Simulated scan of single mutants.
Amino acid sequence: MAAIKTTSEPRPESRTESISAGSDRDHVQSLERGLALLLAFDAEHPEPTLTELAQLTGYSRPAVRRFLITLERLGYVSSRAGRWSLTPRVLLIGQHYTESHALVAVAQPHLLALAEQTGESASLAVLDSGEVAYVARVPVRRIMSINVQVGTRVPAHATSMGRVLLAWAPAGVVDEVLTRHPPRALTARTTTDPVALRNLLHEVRAQGFAVVSGELESGLLSAAVPVRDRSGTVVAALASSTSTGRASEQVLRRDTVPLLLEAADRIGTELGHRRQTQRSVPSEGFY
Protein backbone atom coordinates (compact mmCIF):
# COMPACT_ATOMS: atom_id res chain seq x y z
CA MET A 1 0.00 0.00 0.00
CA ALA A 2 1.21 3.48 -0.81
CA ALA A 3 2.07 5.57 2.22
CA ILE A 4 -0.64 7.96 3.37
CA LYS A 5 0.79 11.39 3.94
CA THR A 6 -1.20 13.38 6.45
CA THR A 7 -0.61 17.10 6.53
CA SER A 8 -1.51 19.97 8.81
CA GLU A 9 -1.98 22.82 6.33
CA PRO A 10 -1.08 23.79 2.77
CA ARG A 11 2.42 25.14 2.29
CA PRO A 12 2.75 28.92 2.00
CA GLU A 13 2.69 28.96 -1.79
CA SER A 14 -0.77 27.35 -1.77
CA ARG A 15 -2.03 30.06 0.55
CA THR A 16 -0.60 32.76 -1.66
CA GLU A 17 -2.22 31.32 -4.76
CA SER A 18 -5.61 31.27 -3.05
CA ILE A 19 -5.58 35.01 -2.37
CA SER A 20 -7.31 37.06 -5.03
CA ALA A 21 -5.40 39.79 -6.85
CA GLY A 22 -7.75 42.39 -5.41
CA SER A 23 -6.72 41.57 -1.84
CA ASP A 24 -2.95 41.42 -2.35
CA ARG A 25 -2.45 44.78 -0.64
CA ASP A 26 -4.10 43.40 2.50
CA HIS A 27 -1.89 40.32 2.58
CA VAL A 28 0.53 40.32 5.54
CA GLN A 29 3.48 38.26 4.37
CA SER A 30 5.23 38.17 7.73
CA LEU A 31 2.14 36.63 9.37
CA GLU A 32 1.94 34.05 6.60
CA ARG A 33 5.59 33.13 7.09
CA GLY A 34 5.24 32.90 10.85
CA LEU A 35 2.33 30.48 10.48
CA ALA A 36 4.20 28.49 7.83
CA LEU A 37 7.08 28.14 10.27
CA LEU A 38 4.77 26.73 12.94
CA LEU A 39 3.34 24.29 10.42
CA ALA A 40 6.82 23.05 9.52
CA PHE A 41 6.85 21.18 12.85
CA ASP A 42 5.33 17.76 12.26
CA ALA A 43 5.74 14.08 13.07
CA GLU A 44 8.80 13.87 10.80
CA HIS A 45 10.36 17.04 12.22
CA PRO A 46 9.31 17.36 15.89
CA GLU A 47 12.54 19.11 16.96
CA PRO A 48 14.19 20.68 13.90
CA THR A 49 17.23 22.91 13.93
CA LEU A 50 17.18 26.45 12.57
CA THR A 51 18.87 25.20 9.40
CA GLU A 52 16.30 22.44 8.94
CA LEU A 53 13.45 24.92 9.38
CA ALA A 54 15.00 27.18 6.76
CA GLN A 55 15.15 24.23 4.37
CA LEU A 56 11.58 23.15 5.13
CA THR A 57 10.09 26.61 4.62
CA GLY A 58 12.41 27.97 1.95
CA TYR A 59 13.08 31.06 4.05
CA SER A 60 16.53 32.47 4.84
CA ARG A 61 18.24 31.56 8.10
CA PRO A 62 18.14 35.18 9.39
CA ALA A 63 14.40 35.38 8.68
CA VAL A 64 13.73 32.04 10.37
CA ARG A 65 15.78 33.15 13.37
CA ARG A 66 13.70 36.34 13.75
CA PHE A 67 10.44 34.42 13.52
CA LEU A 68 11.62 31.84 16.05
CA ILE A 69 12.68 34.50 18.54
CA THR A 70 9.30 36.22 18.19
CA LEU A 71 7.38 32.95 18.57
CA GLU A 72 9.52 32.02 21.55
CA ARG A 73 8.72 35.32 23.26
CA LEU A 74 5.03 34.66 22.62
CA GLY A 75 5.37 31.21 24.13
CA TYR A 76 4.64 29.09 21.06
CA VAL A 77 8.10 27.52 20.63
CA SER A 78 11.07 26.72 22.84
CA SER A 79 14.70 25.86 22.14
CA ARG A 80 17.15 23.42 23.67
CA ALA A 81 20.63 22.44 22.52
CA GLY A 82 20.14 24.05 19.12
CA ARG A 83 16.81 22.38 18.43
CA TRP A 84 13.36 23.91 18.46
CA SER A 85 10.01 22.44 19.48
CA LEU A 86 6.42 23.55 19.82
CA THR A 87 5.01 24.27 23.27
CA PRO A 88 1.56 23.27 24.58
CA ARG A 89 0.46 26.86 23.96
CA VAL A 90 -0.14 26.07 20.28
CA LEU A 91 -3.02 23.81 21.41
CA LEU A 92 -4.93 26.95 22.34
CA ILE A 93 -5.35 27.74 18.64
CA GLY A 94 -7.21 24.49 18.08
CA GLN A 95 -9.13 24.97 21.31
CA HIS A 96 -10.33 28.38 20.16
CA TYR A 97 -11.52 26.80 16.92
CA THR A 98 -13.64 24.19 18.68
CA GLU A 99 -14.98 26.73 21.17
CA SER A 100 -15.91 29.22 18.45
CA HIS A 101 -17.59 26.71 16.14
CA ALA A 102 -21.03 25.57 17.26
CA LEU A 103 -20.79 22.64 14.86
CA VAL A 104 -18.17 20.82 16.93
CA ALA A 105 -19.87 21.46 20.27
CA VAL A 106 -23.26 20.39 18.91
CA ALA A 107 -21.91 17.29 17.19
CA GLN A 108 -19.79 15.86 20.03
CA PRO A 109 -22.58 14.22 22.08
CA HIS A 110 -24.08 12.77 18.91
CA LEU A 111 -20.71 11.26 17.98
CA LEU A 112 -20.56 9.67 21.42
CA ALA A 113 -24.06 8.24 21.02
CA LEU A 114 -23.26 6.97 17.53
CA ALA A 115 -20.09 5.24 18.76
CA GLU A 116 -22.09 3.57 21.54
CA GLN A 117 -24.77 2.41 19.09
CA THR A 118 -22.37 0.97 16.53
CA GLY A 119 -19.44 -0.03 18.70
CA GLU A 120 -17.25 1.65 16.08
CA SER A 121 -15.34 4.93 15.76
CA ALA A 122 -17.33 8.04 14.83
CA SER A 123 -15.86 11.12 13.14
CA LEU A 124 -16.83 14.58 11.93
CA ALA A 125 -14.80 16.26 9.20
CA VAL A 126 -14.77 19.27 6.90
CA LEU A 127 -13.23 19.92 3.50
CA ASP A 128 -10.18 22.16 3.60
CA SER A 129 -7.86 22.84 0.67
CA GLY A 130 -8.75 19.61 -1.09
CA GLU A 131 -8.33 17.40 1.96
CA VAL A 132 -10.56 16.01 4.66
CA ALA A 133 -9.77 17.55 8.06
CA TYR A 134 -11.04 15.81 11.19
CA VAL A 135 -12.64 18.32 13.58
CA ALA A 136 -14.19 15.87 16.06
CA ARG A 137 -13.72 12.17 16.70
CA VAL A 138 -14.71 9.42 19.13
CA PRO A 139 -12.31 6.49 18.66
CA VAL A 140 -13.42 3.05 19.77
CA ARG A 141 -10.54 1.00 18.44
CA ARG A 142 -7.60 1.68 16.19
CA ILE A 143 -8.40 0.36 12.73
CA MET A 144 -5.96 2.43 10.66
CA SER A 145 -2.18 2.34 10.53
CA ILE A 146 -2.06 6.12 10.93
CA ASN A 147 -2.99 7.74 14.23
CA VAL A 148 -6.24 9.54 13.40
CA GLN A 149 -7.12 12.39 15.74
CA VAL A 150 -8.60 15.86 15.59
CA GLY A 151 -6.56 17.83 13.06
CA THR A 152 -5.54 14.80 10.99
CA ARG A 153 -5.92 15.33 7.25
CA VAL A 154 -6.44 12.65 4.61
CA PRO A 155 -7.05 12.73 0.83
CA ALA A 156 -10.68 13.48 -0.01
CA HIS A 157 -10.97 11.26 -3.08
CA ALA A 158 -10.40 7.99 -1.22
CA THR A 159 -12.63 8.53 1.81
CA SER A 160 -16.36 8.33 2.45
CA MET A 161 -16.31 11.73 4.20
CA GLY A 162 -14.39 13.29 1.34
CA ARG A 163 -16.84 12.01 -1.24
CA VAL A 164 -19.78 13.32 0.75
CA LEU A 165 -18.18 16.74 1.07
CA LEU A 166 -17.25 16.84 -2.62
CA ALA A 167 -20.67 15.55 -3.71
CA TRP A 168 -22.37 18.65 -2.31
CA ALA A 169 -19.53 21.07 -3.05
CA PRO A 170 -19.84 23.62 -5.90
CA ALA A 171 -18.56 22.41 -9.26
CA GLY A 172 -15.67 24.87 -9.12
CA VAL A 173 -14.47 23.40 -5.83
CA VAL A 174 -14.56 19.87 -7.24
CA ASP A 175 -12.66 20.98 -10.33
CA GLU A 176 -10.01 22.68 -8.20
CA VAL A 177 -9.62 19.67 -5.90
CA LEU A 178 -9.19 17.21 -8.76
CA THR A 179 -6.79 19.57 -10.54
CA ARG A 180 -4.62 20.73 -7.65
CA HIS A 181 -4.77 17.40 -5.82
CA PRO A 182 -4.72 14.76 -8.58
CA PRO A 183 -6.19 11.50 -7.20
CA ARG A 184 -3.43 9.00 -6.48
CA ALA A 185 -3.58 5.32 -5.70
CA LEU A 186 -3.28 4.58 -1.99
CA THR A 187 -4.30 0.93 -2.35
CA ALA A 188 -5.09 -1.36 -5.25
CA ARG A 189 -8.76 -0.38 -4.88
CA THR A 190 -8.38 3.40 -4.93
CA THR A 191 -10.43 5.14 -7.63
CA THR A 192 -8.14 7.60 -9.38
CA ASP A 193 -9.86 8.23 -12.72
CA PRO A 194 -11.46 11.74 -12.58
CA VAL A 195 -14.46 10.69 -14.68
CA ALA A 196 -15.12 7.68 -12.49
CA LEU A 197 -14.82 9.83 -9.39
CA ARG A 198 -17.30 12.37 -10.70
CA ASN A 199 -19.73 9.54 -11.42
CA LEU A 200 -19.31 8.31 -7.85
CA LEU A 201 -20.03 11.82 -6.56
CA HIS A 202 -23.27 11.86 -8.57
CA GLU A 203 -24.19 8.53 -6.99
CA VAL A 204 -23.40 9.77 -3.49
CA ARG A 205 -25.48 12.90 -3.97
CA ALA A 206 -28.41 10.89 -5.34
CA GLN A 207 -28.48 8.29 -2.56
CA GLY A 208 -27.56 10.66 0.26
CA PHE A 209 -24.54 8.82 1.66
CA ALA A 210 -21.18 7.28 0.73
CA VAL A 211 -19.66 3.91 1.52
CA VAL A 212 -15.96 3.34 0.76
CA SER A 213 -14.07 0.10 1.24
CA GLY A 214 -10.30 -0.34 1.14
CA GLU A 215 -9.51 2.78 -0.89
CA LEU A 216 -7.70 4.83 1.74
CA GLU A 217 -6.20 1.82 3.47
CA SER A 218 -6.64 -1.90 2.88
CA GLY A 219 -9.26 -3.37 5.18
CA LEU A 220 -10.75 0.01 6.15
CA LEU A 221 -14.51 0.30 5.66
CA SER A 222 -16.46 3.48 6.29
CA ALA A 223 -19.79 5.17 5.65
CA ALA A 224 -20.52 8.90 5.74
CA VAL A 225 -23.48 11.26 5.42
CA PRO A 226 -23.79 15.05 5.05
CA VAL A 227 -24.45 17.44 7.95
CA ARG A 228 -26.36 20.63 7.09
CA ASP A 229 -26.50 24.01 8.78
CA ARG A 230 -29.42 26.43 9.14
CA SER A 231 -29.30 27.41 5.46
CA GLY A 232 -29.28 23.78 4.31
CA THR A 233 -25.65 23.96 3.22
CA VAL A 234 -23.55 20.85 3.78
CA VAL A 235 -20.94 21.99 6.30
CA ALA A 236 -19.47 18.66 7.41
CA ALA A 237 -19.53 14.92 6.96
CA LEU A 238 -20.39 12.46 9.70
CA ALA A 239 -18.82 9.01 9.43
CA SER A 240 -18.58 5.63 11.09
CA SER A 241 -15.51 3.49 10.42
CA THR A 242 -14.81 -0.19 10.89
CA SER A 243 -12.81 -2.95 9.23
CA THR A 244 -13.76 -5.41 6.51
CA GLY A 245 -13.05 -8.15 9.02
CA ARG A 246 -15.85 -6.86 11.27
CA ALA A 247 -18.48 -5.86 8.71
CA SER A 248 -19.32 -5.75 5.02
CA GLU A 249 -20.53 -2.97 2.74
CA GLN A 250 -24.00 -4.50 2.79
CA VAL A 251 -24.09 -4.53 6.59
CA LEU A 252 -22.89 -0.93 6.73
CA ARG A 253 -25.59 0.18 4.30
CA ARG A 254 -28.31 -1.74 6.14
CA ASP A 255 -27.39 -1.09 9.78
CA THR A 256 -25.02 1.87 10.05
CA VAL A 257 -26.17 4.31 7.37
CA PRO A 258 -29.65 4.74 8.95
CA LEU A 259 -28.00 5.57 12.29
CA LEU A 260 -25.70 8.06 10.59
CA LEU A 261 -28.61 9.75 8.83
CA GLU A 262 -30.52 10.04 12.10
CA ALA A 263 -27.50 11.48 13.93
CA ALA A 264 -26.77 13.94 11.12
CA ASP A 265 -30.41 15.01 11.11
CA ARG A 266 -30.30 15.67 14.86
CA ILE A 267 -27.09 17.69 14.52
CA GLY A 268 -28.59 19.68 11.66
CA THR A 269 -31.75 20.35 13.66
CA GLU A 270 -29.70 21.78 16.52
CA LEU A 271 -27.89 23.95 14.01
CA GLY A 272 -31.23 25.28 12.82
CA HIS A 273 -31.76 23.15 9.73
CA ARG A 274 -35.34 22.15 8.95
CA ARG A 275 -35.56 18.62 7.63
CA GLN A 276 -36.86 18.23 4.10
CA THR A 277 -39.29 15.49 3.22
CA GLN A 278 -37.65 14.77 -0.11
CA ARG A 279 -34.08 13.69 -0.64
CA SER A 280 -32.08 16.07 -2.77
CA VAL A 281 -31.05 14.87 -6.22
CA PRO A 282 -28.43 16.18 -8.64
CA SER A 283 -29.55 19.40 -10.28
CA GLU A 284 -29.11 19.97 -13.99
CA GLY A 285 -25.58 21.01 -14.82
CA PHE A 286 -24.14 19.62 -11.60
CA TYR A 287 -20.42 19.25 -12.31
Rank of each mutant, 00 (worst) to 15 (best):
M1W: 09
V64E: 02
R65N: 11
E203M: 08
V195W: 10
A224E: 03
G172R: 08
A133H: 02
T70D: 14
S213I: 02
R163A: 05
L92P: 01
V135D: 00
E72T: 07
L252F: 12
P226E: 05
E9T: 05
Q95I: 08
T16S: 10
R254A: 14
R11M: 09
T179Y: 01
T118M: 10
L111G: 01
F41R: 00
S218D: 15
T191G: 03
W168P: 00
A105N: 06
M161W: 01
L220S: 10
G272V: 13
P155E: 08
R61V: 15
P62K: 10
E215G: 10
A107R: 00
V132L: 08
V138R: 10
V104A: 05
E13Y: 11
R228L: 03
L37K: 05
P155A: 10
V235D: 01
A210E: 03
E17I: 09
G245I: 09
V227N: 00
E262C: 02
S248L: 10
G130K: 06
L86K: 09
V235P: 01
S23N: 13
A105M: 07
L35N: 06
S222I: 04
T152S: 15
Y97F: 13
D193C: 11
W84M: 05
E215L: 07
E217Y: 09
V154A: 06
V227W: 00
D255M: 08
D42V: 04
R205F: 06
P88T: 11
T152R: 06
S231H: 06
A156H: 03
A224V: 05
V64N: 03
I146E: 07
L71K: 01
G214F: 01
L50N: 04
R184G: 03
R11G: 11
R153L: 02
P226A: 07
R246F: 08
Q29F: 12
S222D: 05
